[in-house]
Design a protein around this nucleic acid. Sequence first.
DNA 1: TGTTTGACTGGGA
DNA 2: CTCCCAGCCAAAC
Length: 112
Amino acid sequence: MEQKHKDFFDQVYQVVRLIPKGCVTSYGAIANYLGAKGSSRMVGWAMNAAHDLDDVPAHRVVNRVGLLTGRHHFTPPDQMQHLLEQEGIKVENDRVKNFKAVFWDPTVELEL
DNA sequence: TGTTTGACTGGGA
DNA sequence: CTCCCAGCCAAAC
């Protein structure tokens, strides 16, 4: 039977879509916003499925230290860094420069 | 149906 | 920020 309510994956998509241009967030921040604090891995798994959607800027989602852990899932892998640089985010050695400044926390910005 | 894996995180050193 | 260890939960095999 169909699930009328939004799935965990869908919830992740909604939050990622709300990430402002030129900003990045972490998997844990999204998971925390969804109330699944310990399920940060599921966010990454959801992003894997989100890869099918054009509306989900997965390149704006990195790990807690600003490391582009999911870049290998992009086509090509350099695409993730390239997209971030287009948004004005500096990336060095697969890591977001000035990560703290571009960090966007949904639990704070959206203030659930 | 049980085991393995994974785009992670937090705590301690 | 870095390295190591343990916990976490759902999807995939």
